[in-house]
Design a protein around this nucleic acid. Structure first.
Length: 439
RNA sequence: CGGGGAGUGGCGCAGCCUGGUAGCGCAUCUGUUUUGGGAACAGAGGGUCGCAGGUUCGAAUCCUGUCUCCCCGACCA
């Protein structure tokens, strides 16, 4: 994409509304614009990030054996009356009436709807286990939206639902999602720690929040120092079909101490000494097993192999997709702007032509642009007639992982400059070497 | 939902107390000189002062109502 033809409203000043760093940077970098309290428009650059995040979530859900579908944002109130939640949910649920006077709501979550759909389509024990998911906008009318997209009223969420014949099966589904979550966040360059959350009606330990560490996160978290070390998705490469191995792996991930502020175990902390670390954290995912709460209330039953009727047990698994965009920035930025992890960067390379009025520079930069595109490299080409300083500042604030700088100074010596955003390292290399490194 | 604050060119703000026909910085546009870390100079465009009433010869300014947004707290599968 040529910047001269793009829509990228980057600002030097921060709007007064923004308080947290990710919100400020998202506005400054032209990723989002607020349209109402807690409601955001995703501008072209921001949308690319959102889609990158969404795609990683999708790939890991698919890998875990979940099946993608899409449910609507608007739901019938009758569906929620079946589960009893229409009255129970409270004012956080946005209620709407259509022209016929029918009660609708903008879905804050989809347990009722998925249960109803699954009930319609699954009749036999042979139809289970199944996991279904979708990535769809939700609305929760929070009393006080804040922190930009991290606590919006309208937000993009991946929500998955598992259906199993019994609790043993339910735990297997849960474990598959558990691993998928670790992998998902690791792929985005985040350190996400599973922390035990309030348990569902069944009790036990089948509910975890995934908290990412970020110095400016919204809540305080406490954990064993082993979580400090960076881990990649490969560290979570488990055979999810090996039930025992999967369980052992999940156990190993939940033995080291990790707790949110409300869940602290002081007795345990005392014995940890220097191994205990604390940080700020942002919740980016939450998984839980809730047994037959919805299946029972909504009459979901399938035939067993002995002709009996079985009420399946369910779990649900949420990832805050739009929240992640903010959370990643919280975890990865510096004084100059965003530092995108490569996996979610809107473009991989920012190509800068230092002098739009210099024929040699234009030719060289155009050539690199064409070759990068031909090689399938996502590149944002700053071909505007601006001064170098302004271009550097723009590239730094939008945080693309690589900056490829073409200027008269380097061309004289037959080189271009390759700068890594995360470290600031610069290499003077030939155009060919630069292409090789980026392709 | 309790408490606090703010609405004035795209963004950040001043003016309001003490009514007199709207200003500054940044951004934008034009021109010239510039050009490796957000250039300088000269000129230009752009605002029914959130909205609705009221008081007054006259309202951004005073009064009443209303809407919106932000911050702290409570809440947050």
């Amino acid at each position: 994409m040529r910047l001269s033809r793009y829509f990228l409203p980057v600002t030097k000043e921060t709007p007064a509304d923004a308080e947290v760093i990710s919100h400020k940077l998202m506005l400054r970098a032209g990723l989002v614009r607020q349209t109402a309290s807690g409601i955001y428009a995703w501008l072209p650059l921001g949308l690319r990030v959102l889609k990158k995040i969404e795609q990683i979530v999708r790939e890991e859900q698919d890998r875990a054996g979940a099946i993608e579908m899409l449910m609507p944002t608007l739901q019938s109130a009758d569906l929620w009356r079946e589960s009893g939640r229409y009255d129970a949910y409270g004012p956080e649920m946005l209620r709407i009436e259509d022209r016929q006077g029918r009660d609708l709501l903008y879905g804050p979550t989809n347990e009722e709807m998925i249960t109803s759909i699954f009930k319609d389509g699954a009749k036999s024990y042979r139809d289970l286990p199944r996991m279904l998911y979708h990535i769809q906008w939700k609305f929760r009318d929070e009393t006080r939206p804040r922190f930009g997209v991290m606590r919006g009223r309208e937000f993009l969420m991946k929500d998955a639902y598992s259906f199993d014949l019994d609790e043993v099966g339910g735990r297997i589904s849960y474990n598959k999602q558990f691993v998928a979550y670790l992998r998902t966040f690791a792929r985005m360059g985040l350190r996400a720690i599973p922390m035990q959350a309030d348990t569902g009606p069944i009790g036990g330990d089948l509910s975890h929040e995934f908290i990412i560490l970020a110095p400016s996160g919204e809540s305080e978290v406490f954990f064993h120092k082993s979580w400090e070390e960076a881990r990649s998705a490969e560290d979570y490469d488990v055979d999810i079909e090996d039930t025992d191995g999967l369980q052992a792996f999940v156990d190993s991930m939940t033995t080291e101490y990790a707790a949110t502020d409300e869940k602290r175990d002081e007795a345990r902390e005392v014995g940890m000494g220097d191994d205990l670390l604390k940080s700020r954290g942002v919740e980016v995912g939450h998984i839980f097993f809730f047994g037959d709460k919805y299946s029972k209330a909504m009459g979901l039953k399938v035939s067993g192999n002995d002709g009996s009727m079985i009420t399946p047990v369910m779990g649900s698994y949420g990832v805050g997709v739009s929240r992640l965009a903010g959370a990643i920035i919280e975890a990865s930025h510096d004084d100059d702007g965003i530092v995108w992890p490569e996996a979610v960067a809107p473009y991989k390379v920012g190509l800068i032509n230092m002098r739009a009025d210099d024929e040699a520079c234009v030719t060289a930069a155009d050539d690199l642009y064409a070759k990068l595109q031909a090689a399938g490299v996502e590149v944002l080409y700053d071909d505007r007639d601006e001064r170098g300083g302004a271009k550097f500042a723009t590239m730094d604030v939008i945080g693309l992982p690589w900056q490829l700088i073409v200027g008269p100074r380097g061309l004289k010596n037959g080189v271009v400059e390759l700068k890594r955003r995360s470290t600031g390292e610069r290499d003077e290399v030939s155009a060919e070497v630069a292409l090789e490194k980026l392709a």
